[in-house]
Simulated scan of single mutants.
Amino acid sequence: MPETTSCAAADAVAAENARSYYRHLGENRYESTIHSQGAWNTHEQHMAPVTGIMTHALEQYQPRADMRLARLSFDILGLIPAGEFTIETMMLRPGKTIELLQAELIANGRVAVRATAWRLQKGDTSSVQAYEDEPMASLESANSWDGMNTWPGGFIRSIEARVNAGHRAGRGRVWLRTPFPMLDGGAPSSALVRLLGLADSANGVSARMDPSSGGWMFPNVDLSLHIYREPEGEWLGLDTHVTMAGDGIGLTSAVLNDRKGPFARSEQILTVRPFPSAS
């Protein structure tokens, strides 16, 4: 089953002292706090805030007012160690109207996560604007929810959750918010960073198997996000579907909502396997 915290008192002190998911150590160096702690292991980072801090780095890299990030694809190359790390960002494909960026999170001498991002030129297309994804039921109609407490870890404890009617295992309708900024001491994060910093939670809000049962584990090895509208606000709505094939592979799909409605889609491919024997 997911590794439980062996030093609960120390974690409580760390949580009391931490005011953000990450501390900026200067230039491209960062340090994770207890709020970034993962659910599968206590000594790793959760992919949700990792997504947020890497999105922040990509936003800050040679920004152009006439362009925005439209697709981000994250490959998780192994356990993401807690503690200090760097983010190396570069341009893979420059262009007047289309650019491809890359960011790598490097910890303990290896690349733990690699992200690529398409940045596209903006323009006035209001005359052909159209949406097909169905919006979630409103935040006002949702109820307070402690279902995320099935999962351990500092990141899970850092978020507030509400649930809409119709939520069940394999089919989730949950709203999430965090009181913590992505980085300490700086300007507020963009709405994109705040909300994408919660998006990896999709694999946990409507899991088909209870992670506390010790039966099955189902971590995702990637996260792909297609952002067709710039989001707003602090609340992220996750309208999720979880598919499990019979050969060890699964998929978590979600439509991402802010309070105005859908703004993106996400996909996470899963490796499904029994928990390792305790012996």
Score class of each variant (00 low, 15 high):
T240F: 02
M244L: 15
E16N: 09
P262I: 07
M182P: 00
G204S: 15
F180K: 04
A103N: 01
M91L: 09
A245L: 13
W216G: 07
A115I: 02
T271S: 07
G153M: 07
A65S: 11
M148A: 07
D200S: 11
M1H: 10
Q37I: 08
H43L: 09
G166W: 08
D239K: 10
G204F: 12
G204W: 09
R110M: 06
S189E: 11
L183K: 06
R29L: 12
W151C: 06
P179S: 11
G26R: 09
T252Y: 01
G185H: 12
R29T: 02
D200P: 02
M91N: 04
Q37F: 05
R168S: 12
S266W: 00
A9H: 04
G78Q: 05
I249R: 15
A278L: 14
S277V: 12
N220M: 04
W216Y: 12
G123H: 04
R229L: 11
L79R: 05
G246H: 10
P274Y: 09
L223Y: 05
L92V: 06
V113R: 02
N149H: 07
D11F: 12
R173I: 01
A107E: 02
S212L: 08
I249W: 01
L79Q: 03
W118Y: 08
R64L: 15
R71D: 02
W40T: 09
S20Q: 14
N17A: 15
P49A: 09
M54N: 04
S36Q: 12
A137R: 13
L195C: 06
A82D: 04
M91D: 02
G186W: 07
A39L: 14
I156Q: 08
M91P: 02
A191Y: 00
A115M: 05
E232V: 10
R194L: 01
E59V: 01
E234V: 09
T125L: 12
M47D: 03
E88A: 11
M136K: 03
M91C: 08
V221Q: 01
G204K: 13
E234R: 14
T150Y: 02
S73Q: 08
A103W: 00
D11Q: 14
P94D: 05
T97W: 00
I156N: 11
L101H: 06
T243K: 10
E88R: 04
S6V: 15
S212F: 02
F74P: 00
L225C: 08
P135E: 04
A142R: 03
P2M: 13
K122W: 00
E99N: 10
F275L: 13
A9M: 05
S141L: 13
T125S: 11
S212K: 13
E3T: 10
G248D: 06
R229T: 07
T4H: 10
P63Q: 05
S73H: 04
P63F: 05
F85S: 03
G153W: 05
G186V: 14
L100D: 00
S127L: 15
S127F: 07
E27N: 14
S126P: 01
T240D: 01
A39M: 15
E27G: 11
G250P: 08
I106R: 06
S32T: 13
S127H: 13
L256W: 00
S126G: 03
G166N: 10
I53Y: 00
A202G: 09
L195K: 01
H43Q: 10
T252K: 03
M1G: 13
R19N: 11
R23D: 12
G26M: 10
T271G: 03
G26A: 09
